[in-house]
Design a protein around this nucleic acid. Sequence first.
DNA 1: AATGAATGAGCCTTCATTCAT
DNA 2: CATGAATGAAGGCTCATTCAT
Lengths: 196, 196, 196, 196
Amino acid sequence: MRAPSLDPDSRRASLVRAAREVFAEKGYHPASVGDIIEAAGVARGTFYNHFESKREIFAAVLAELMLEVGGVVQPIDVRQDIHEQVRANLHRLAAAMASQGAAVRILFTEAEGIDKDGEIALAAFYAHVLARVEKALSDGQRLGVVRPGEVRQSARCLLGMLKEPVMLARLAREPLDAPAMAEAIYGLLRGGVLSV
Amino acid sequence: MRAPSLDPDSRRASLVRAAREVFAEKGYHPASVGDIIEAAGVARGTFYNHFESKREIFAAVLAELMLEVGGVVQPIDVRQDIHEQVRANLHRLAAAMASQGAAVRILFTEAEGIDKDGEIALAAFYAHVLARVEKALSDGQRLGVVRPGEVRQSARCLLGMLKEPVMLARLAREPLDAPAMAEAIYGLLRGGVLSV
Amino acid sequence: MRAPSLDPDSRRASLVRAAREVFAEKGYHPASVGDIIEAAGVARGTFYNHFESKREIFAAVLAELMLEVGGVVQPIDVRQDIHEQVRANLHRLAAAMASQGAAVRILFTEAEGIDKDGEIALAAFYAHVLARVEKALSDGQRLGVVRPGEVRQSARCLLGMLKEPVMLARLAREPLDAPAMAEAIYGLLRGGVLSV
Amino acid sequence: MRAPSLDPDSRRASLVRAAREVFAEKGYHPASVGDIIEAAGVARGTFYNHFESKREIFAAVLAELMLEVGGVVQPIDVRQDIHEQVRANLHRLAAAMASQGAAVRILFTEAEGIDKDGEIALAAFYAHVLARVEKALSDGQRLGVVRPGEVRQSARCLLGMLKEPVMLARLAREPLDAPAMAEAIYGLLRGGVLSV
DNA sequence: AATGAATGAGCCTTCATTCAT
DNA sequence: CATGAATGAAGGCTCATTCAT
């Protein structure tokens, strides 16, 4: 039975949706094009009418995820309580990652290994995110909300604090306690762990 | 040309060495047994005289890496300057990770998705590491060197701070500035980033 | 050169046909999937689009053979000359086996030792055949056409009388003289060999 | 630890003994040289000091079996009760086959498939056996103990009666009831199954 | 003669991709 | 655009055999 000829964008979208689930569940390499078309209820050929390769659809999934995760962070309004806004952003980020659950893992663990030739905008994505965090830190320093000091490495560490708990929860097959994670990070940002 | 007849341990070691490089460069799935034996200068059958499968040699590489990385951390002597010892450990860890370069990525990115059947001790490794970090934090709290508060999530974040800069440096194809990374983490642990 | 796109049933059938010849000539283990696809004029992947494994296609060949050989035996009509009908059945069976030539050897020699996990219905097939023969003998006894006595072992021997001459002809690379064989068996059934 | 340097014949014999068990349990193809040397407690190289190939040791096993099985048949003494002697021979044969159990299967099912190039004396063995049976039948006819008629096909059928029950018992994983089998065959030889 | 590490051809199987319909 | 049969390179693994010690 022939699937209805959807407009190209919808078909594409439904393939990406299916692919996201499949990749999330199995990971990139173990997931097969067969899995994806089965999940999408579409014939093999159809897949290749919309994507040139497995890699390309993976990139599409990734791009979508990046937008979604990046979108939850709200710009800081310097006239309001900054700490509270940072905290709220952390909670939103943690919640987003927890809800995406499996899917986010892709962004975090697999993408790099697939990105030969840099065809996937992963490096760019991270560069973008890092730049954003670094700018936030610098701005904060200028406003006196962030301690002075180098900013580049700190931004990297910050990213790690966000990603690692997600990874570990997945690895241990435990659910992610998003609020606890957000609070822990906030606590670290506020005062470190070592007492003076 | 026939490879010289080594005793099993040496041959095994040389295969693990070769495999480590190959896995580091290509990642688990893209690396083939063919790549490994070529790197080791050995025939296909020889590989299978020493390892039952690609997965098994991967596990061996992993185990080695764990030992090496874990080995650089030295226990804290409470009668001496604790902050300084923490800092020294961070520097040693950072240096170890930087020197292993590509190889460490294995520990960090792959291994999940390969671990069907839990045959690879990755989860166990992380559990072990986390337990160690958590204990260090708790001990520190008892000694008054670490701020009171929950310890579980913080340990996870700490791990992230260590791993992420390594990953990002790799992704950006930049060398890792180990001392800077260690200092940044130390700074974070000491006082967070937000000023009070 | 690409093979024409057949409907799945035809392709499957052509593969089974090819496999039957290959298995007949080489036997199960020595025959390779490569031999089969070559005989079928089809690419490797095509084979696995239709069969999950070499074992599965072997089972398919076996099933076909069973049907063909089993199909030539006609039920006895008690109102007619029974001896003559038995004899006719023997001739038909012998002819069928002779015409299948090599292929029948499969049914007779291989299949054991392949049947790990009992996935191949060989034991079942023989159980079925034996039951049929035993029933025929019992029925015959009730009708007074078959001597009284145990029936189980006799059925087994009967089967052996049919198979062995086929095997031996093959082994000696002689053609099978089907009518002679049928007559010999008929003679044996009628009066044994020892005179009283 | 180095095995004592047995005299060649003993070592050879112990290898053949080991091989017989291994082949009997697994069948020719699934049995590996590794299995055999393990069973014999000997190193790989040692095996090839005594046999040129797996096939060669298989042939040796076969030759041994042929001797053993053939040896139990005793020549008929025409001055004594011939029926009884035939019956006794049948019982001895059946018992021999039952005791060899698995090993005999080799002779019966696998050998042919391995005998490319006729390197194994299987055809010769069967020719020999058949000749012996045929001669017995002819002699019997001359003595009036065997019904007149062709003898060639009957001899083949006779062989089948002996082999098949062994095969079937094995296939069904039942023990072989040797006396019952011998009696059934004797009954068949005496009077067939069809009543007149 | 015994040893066992090394060999490599060859096998079965997978799966991303192509293309005729 | 949709379809799905066909493709074939590539991969993991086995195992009979060789040979230096």
